[in-house]
Structure formats: structure tokens, C-alpha cells
Amino acid sequence: MQLSTIPKDSIINMAEENGGQVVSNFLLHGLKIKNDTGENIILKDISFELYSAGVAVKQVTYQGKYLDNAVENFAENNGWLCKDIGAKLFLGEEDFWNAECFAKSVVMNENQETGIFNEYFITVHESAIDELRIKVAYDKFGEKHVQELSVPLVQYENKNQYIFPLKGSISTCGHYKSLLDHRQHYSMEFAIDMAQYNVEQKLSYKENMSKEDYVVYGKDVLAIADGEVVDCYHSFEITTSWNWSERKPFIDQYGFMPAQCGNHIVLKHDNEEYSFYGHLATDSLTVKKGDKVKQGQVIAKVGHTGMSGCPHLHFQLMDGPDFLADRGLPCSFSNIRNVDGDRISLIEEENIIVHAE
């Protein structure tokens, strides 16, 4: 039995202390279970065991009718995760799963496979969860076998010091505690959308607002640290639809990135961390590929291009320059405060306002 995961090497745990306990919060994007035993087998259960410093803390198990349903639903609903944009956006790669080999029941023929997509874990313990043990039990010729895989959990520390990409009081949303927003995508797991309210604390405040009516539209976008422009696009003028059939013609004509993210910039920083800025205003970029930038330098203006619900900045940090292949990373900032005026570094709550100096 072959077990494979995404991420492959380790999972980032967004652990935080709360009331003397630690809340662990992490996501397994994908688990592949492939029958490579050379014989037909019967899948009996899939268990996820959570450990902290070698101590078992919690177990989540699919078995019985729940396992039956999980295997059937996976085969019926997840073929789109095997190829093309869907696979890249959600898993960072194609061909992790092979839809032609999906098992439709717990009776798995040779070389058939099944899996788990986007399994979320949130648990409270006296210390952070630092290991996920996956155990898959199956019967072969009436004998029980168990295949195990251990995946370490890490609490990621940024390798560079970053400033917030906008100045002033900024509303933030779509971050990692919004489980079905950015987080379910591989590179966007820790992405943040940034907008701005007017003096009445409203984002939308009148009928038929134009993009210029939004407070954040045209606001300066800043480089979060010294770096080099490794990718950018500046001339896309369109706000595309959430509807795939309506967006597809723009993808065919302009490419996926402009149609999805509009005008955008990718900066390479020291220690293999990369920042991404999306939905930028058309022809507002002040940099081009190959340019060196300094921390705080204006690199563009906030826009409303690509798949954008309203004018805002889409921001994320990655471990490489490729929006469709590289892994999302948490990003801490050195110059933000919360609404109480307390200095914070990591945005740990959904829909909060921060002030960037």
C-alpha cells in the first residue's frame, strides 16, 4: 500500500496560545492511497493520529459507512483535481491522483487508488501538535495489514523582516481561518485580501459604485522587503467572472494569471521567500522584470483586475515564484497594530482591521 501526501515533507501548523492552552490549526491538502500490493484488498479504515512531543492527543478515523461514503464521494467528485488548472491551484501539481484509477468502493483492485482532499484539523492541547501519523488498515486474503506514514508539523518562522504592503487602516479577510476561501488552495493557503472602509466603516456605501469610488482603489502598493522583480503583468484591463465558462475565453487569450489575478507582481526576497501582489491597477506598475526594489518602495497601485469582487489587494508569501506550483507561507509584519493600538505581527483573525505605520 502506497501513501503519499500534499504537502510532502511537512505541514505548517498555525498554533497559537489561548487561555494557557495551545490551539493547533493545520491542513492536509491531499492524501493518496494506492493499492500497489499486487492483489485486491479491502480498505478497512483511514486514521489520522495527532501527537505532541510523542504523546497521542487525538484520533480521527474513517471506517464503516463513513469510509464507504468517503471513498464513493471521492471517486464521484474529485476527478477535476487530477489535471489542468484545478490540480495546480488546489494541489500545486498535476497527476497527484489519477482519476482513471479511482476505486469506487472499499474493495480496491490492484493499482486502484482513493484519497482524502483538504482534511482540516483544529485541536486544543497543552502544547502544539508536532506530528501527524496516518494509518491505513486493509484486508488482504483475510489478513489485516496496516500501512503507516508520519508527517512532521512545523511552526513556520519568516526568514526576513517584512512590512505591510499598504499604509493606513486596512481591513483584512480571506486568511487561513476562513477555511473555504484562499486556504484550500496550495499557494494561497495563507493569502490575505486587503481593502479599506470609508469614514462610516463601510466598504460599499452607495448604489452602482465605480471602482474609483472605493477608498482603497489607487492606493500605493509597497514592496514588503528588498527584492527583485521575477514576474509581473501590467496591461490587463478586465475584471473577470467567477463563472468558469465566462472566464475561460480570457484565460485562452491572455493566459491564466492575468485572467485570475489581473495585473500582478512577484518579488524574490532573501532566503527563498517570494511575495505576490495581485489585482493591481492597469499600467500602474512602477517596476519591470529584473528590477531591484527596496523595502517600502511603491511598486504599483491597488486595482480591480482579474477575478476580483471589488477593488482590493491580494497578497501572499510563497516558497517559490510560481503561483500555481509553489507553497504558500504565513507572513508576519513588523509595522502593524490592531484596533486597540497594540502591536501585532501575524494576522490571526478573519475580518479584522489593522493599522500599518
Rank of each mutant, 00 (worst) to 15 (best):
M14L: 13
A15Q: 10
L27A: 00
L28I: 11
D36S: 13
I41V: 14
L43N: 06
L50W: 11
G54V: 05
Q63T: 12
Y66F: 08
A70K: 14
N78D: 05
G79M: 08
W80S: 10
L81H: 05
E93L: 13
N98M: 10
E100W: 00
N109A: 15
E110V: 11
E113D: 05
N118V: 04
F121R: 14
H125S: 15
E126P: 03
I134W: 10
A137F: 00
D139Y: 13
K140C: 11
F141V: 03
V146D: 08
E148G: 03
L153G: 00
N158V: 01
Q161L: 03
F164D: 04
S171M: 11
Y176K: 06
Y186S: 07
S187D: 02
S187Q: 04
A191F: 02
D193A: 01
M194W: 04
Y205P: 08
K206S: 11
M209N: 04
D213Y: 07
V216T: 07
K219L: 09
A225H: 07
E237K: 13
I238Y: 11
P249L: 15
P249G: 15
I251L: 14
Y254T: 03
G255I: 10
G262L: 12
H264C: 09
L267I: 09
Y277W: 07
G278I: 04
T282N: 12
L285V: 14
K288G: 09
K292I: 11
K294Y: 06
K294G: 07
V298E: 01
V298K: 15
V298P: 03
G306A: 09
H312L: 06
D322G: 04
D322S: 09
C331D: 01
I336D: 03
D342A: 10
E348W: 06
V354M: 06
